[in-house]
Design a binder for these strands. Structure first.
Lengths: 327, 327
DNA sequence: GGTGCAATTGAAATCGATCCCAATTTTTGT
DNA sequence: ACAAAAATTGGGATCGATTTCAATTGCACC
């Protein structure tokens, strides 16, 4: 494969000049034309590894999520990637499966890649132990964040959103409401807090289950709740993956919503509006989250000193059939 | 950030020796210990750009799909990535939106990255124009392939699968069956061929629509079909994205399946089993497709000369409520 | 025609690793 | 204990680009 020296010889100029053509440096039109022609002749492609080594910037960002198969992360990723490529950056995608060891491994990989920055949805455990300053690149957290604002982050107003679900269910006439929350992310904790708060405000108990973030775990947990002495009249579920488990549990228990159990949760996945009269969910602005994260990262790269900030976005309550008023 | 020279000095050895420690070269245990300790002290991270430049292998593969939000590609990607990382390779993910210009752009990027190989789901147009030999890296096509076996590929037995859907519908008593197919991929064409063939074998006409590969396009097309004079009694839909459009069209037209129109399609997306009594679909072995593609790529890297081959995987018919026998 | 200044161009160092080859040390065999 | 063989180590070139700095060219103006 042709290198810059070959192009230089073919065009009768020095490698420096070819490089200048590549980087839009000062070159006379005549020479630029000749060089470009030579590049075409030789089908020249700059070697990005060499360029990165010499120029000391990789124009690459890392995107570390738990599982790209979770539609929330799929959508966010797509937005991040579009935005990144628009800004001339590549994306390295990593799936951690909510496993702190994998998180550490990928962070290490990001260091070896000398990435420009990282967008990261960490587990609670990693949030607690991580010192982003020691990493050598800026980090923007998404979906999850530490309580104190020490790292840039883009998150949903989780407490408000969870409370909004509760308030909605209360307004529809439900009282016996139970919650199911993911146990690995700060998001699950926040949503639980909002849930508990709103229930307490209504003077109601707030029974809650914390489960591993998988469909199967949620299905098992919900099946158990449904089989219990005091079956809840409504369920608040803290994300789309768990909601899928809940729906499966209801189906296999032969129960119907909202007649037997009302449902309300998070993430407006495509199927939620198709199920019966629709599932009531908080829709997250997934595209905006991805774009905001990328924008924050770019701003941070512009100014390493500016104080960290958290962008809090609001969810949108989509009230649908699964939380119809109590008959 | 520390470099190899710093580590060498700290450990009192030459850079060559440090490099050997990194690459498991021949080093005495004593020295290896010292070097490793120095690395820990300095929090050393090898610079992958430098390593790639010098060693002339990037251990990076490109994964080019149309849209990661399509659950089929999401699942395949996840399998590819797991398999890649397991083999010590990174993945660069690209979304082309079935746009040949983007495809060309990303292929060019892959050349600049000097990737080891590429796994690619190309549009028909690109399949027709592309000369994989000129790219400089091996390509394994997934989901789609050229008719003649000139490039490694992993595909479904699309004709058989589509025919299986038709045969199933016929067996259930349906006769007026129409098809909806994507118009940008060879996959759509193959599935149409299988559909048409099976219908012809039954002595039936095979009305078909070709649409852009988006939910909206499918929804519009299906709405039109449903409003036509002769509404079909059953629909074969060529992938999960289009199926979503079809379901939406039925819903908004106030029609029910299978009573008004039976449905059968591809891709066992999570929601297909939840809708009513379930949607009849051909399940693709998504994980296997990703793993097989990665395995093929590795074999090809091992032996550039072996003759190209196509791995054809079989889909699995999941007969569910949407194609219940005609009453 | 010569001078001064800006615009182009080229030479050579450099980024941080790997790798070839030669030098050195250690091990082995007798 | 000594020579030969094997194992380990170091020196220095190299991968393919960018970047600094100096040299050259072109042009305007006196």
């Amino acid at each position: 494969m042709a290198k810059i020296k070959d192009v230089a010889e073919a065009a009768g100029v020095s490698p420096s000049t070819v490089s200048r053509v590549l980087c839009n440096g000062p070159v006379s039109d005549k020479v630029r034309k000749r060089v470009e022609e030579a590049m075409r002749q030789l089908d020249y492609r700059p070697n990005l590894a060499a360029r990165r080594l010499r120029s000391q910037h990789t124009d690459t960002i890392g995107l570390i999520v738990s599982d790209i198969r979770n539609p929330f992360f799929t959508a966010v990723s797509r937005a991040v990637e579009d935005e990144a490529y628009r800004n001339g950056m590549r994306v390295i995608l990593c799936n951690t499966d909510e496993n702190p060891d994998k998180e550490a491994m990928y962070l290490r990989l990001m260091q070896e890649e000398r990435v420009t920055g990282v967008i990261f949805a960490p587990t609670r455990q990693t949030v607690a132990n991580l010192d982003p300053a020691a990493l050598g690149f800026p980090v923007v957290m998404i979906d999850r964040a530490s309580r104190d604002v020490t790292t840039d982050a883009v998150v949903l107003d989780n407490r408000r959103a969870a409370a909004a679900l509760v308030e909605h269910l209360l307004a529809q006439g439900y009282r016996d409401i139970a919650g199911v929350f993911g146990n690995t992310s700060s998001t699950g904790m926040e949503r639980h807090a909002g849930f508990a708060e709103a229930m307490q405000q209504a003077g109601l108990p707030a029974p809650a289950q914390f489960v591993a973030p998988s469909v199967e775990a949620a299905e098992q947990a919900v099946l158990a709740m449904l089989a219990a002495e005091q079956r809840p009249r409504a369920l608040v579920v803290s994300n789309g993956v768990l909601m899928l488990g809940a729906v499966r549990a209801l189906k296999s228990a032969g129960l119907h919503w909202p007649q037997d159990v009302a449902l309300a949760g998070f993430d407006n996945d495509v199927w939620t509006e198709l199920l019966g009269d629709g599932l009531t969910v908080i829709e997250q602005p997934v595209g905006e989250i991805g774009r905001a994260a990328m924008a924050m990262l770019l701003e941070r790269l512009d100014d390493a000193e500016r104080s960290p900030r958290i962008v809090v976005l609001q969810g949108k309550l989509l009230a649908r059939g699964s939380s119809a008023p109590v008959a």
